[in-house]
């Protein structure tokens, strides 16, 4: 008997309206510890697929499972329990511009119920983990794009999740910064974290040669296993 996959999409559809489809009968399995790119043109369904996992979008048909749990079992009032099982790196950084780097992390930690003492212990550790501890007192506007992305990834790690979901994490970065961020994500993956990335940055995707799933019109049109 084989163990069930970590993430499973079974014939999943997302219909935004009668004419607009996000996902179209998509089926996919992702094992624990995998690093997967989702590629495709704008509107292919990459972000929708990730948002179905984070429950920012509700699938209209099919079944989605994470760690054996059916996402439909999470009521709206309990979605936060699902989101604590994953780290989310949004397409826009979503950093608080008036707060310093450590305050941005502290804010996220406080909002999930951590005490001031826990915040004092956790913030340096996380910033160390994403190699941005030297900019702890900087404001977001004083950071480069790559540094801001490190803070965002650090914020996604506050719950020590087994899964990291990143939507276009290199979208606003120059090539060297993109590679730095990808290496950081690979490092997290090497520690056992499952990493899902939506990206249209093909040079980066090709350079790192990981499992790649290509989407078009909400369907999987090609899939390549990584090295």
């Amino acid at each position: 008997m084989s163990a069930s996959p970590f993430i499973e999409f079974r014939d999943v559809s997302v219909a935004y309206s009668r004419d607009v489809t996000g996902l179209d009968h998509l089926s996919l399995q992702i094992e624990r510890g995998e690093f997967t790119f989702f590629t495709g043109p704008t509107g292919a369904g990459k972000s929708t697929l990730l948002k179905v996992l984070t429950r920012e979008v509700h699938h209209t048909d099919g079944e989605v499972r994470l760690g054996g749990q059916n996402l439909n079992d999470f009521r709206d009032s309990n979605v936060h329990k699902l989101r604590r099982q994953m780290g989310i790196v949004p397409q826009n950084y979503e950093l608080l511009p008036t707060k310093r780097v450590w305050e941005n992390l502290a804010y996220a930690l406080r909002s999930v119920g951590k005490s001031r003492k826990e915040v004092r212990d956790e913030v340096p550790r996380i910033l160390q983990q994403v190699n941005i501890a030297h900019r702890i007192d900087a404001y977001p506007h004083q950071l480069s794009g790559g540094e801001q992305q490190r803070v965002v990834i650090g914020r996604a790690l506050i719950n020590k999740p087994p899964l990291l979901i990143a939507d276009e994490p290199t979208g606003n970065l120059d090539p060297s910064q993109s590679i730095e961020i990808m290496e950081l994500l690979l490092g997290l993956n090497s520690e056992g974290m499952t990493v899902l990335i939506a990206s249209h940055d093909m040079p980066v995707v090709e350079r790192f040669a990981k499992r790649t799933v290509r989407l078009e019109h909400g369907r999987i049109v090609a899939a390549e296993a990584g090295e």
């Binding site: 989101r83 979503e94 608080l96 996604a156």
Partner: peptide, 16 residues
């Protein structure tokens, strides 16, 4: 709205 979005992303409860 940005604070609220961050809270939702990191798993803050609806009540929070």
């Amino acid at each position: 709205r940005r604070e609220a979005r961050i809270m939702m992303l990191v798993g803050a409860s609806r009540l929070t």
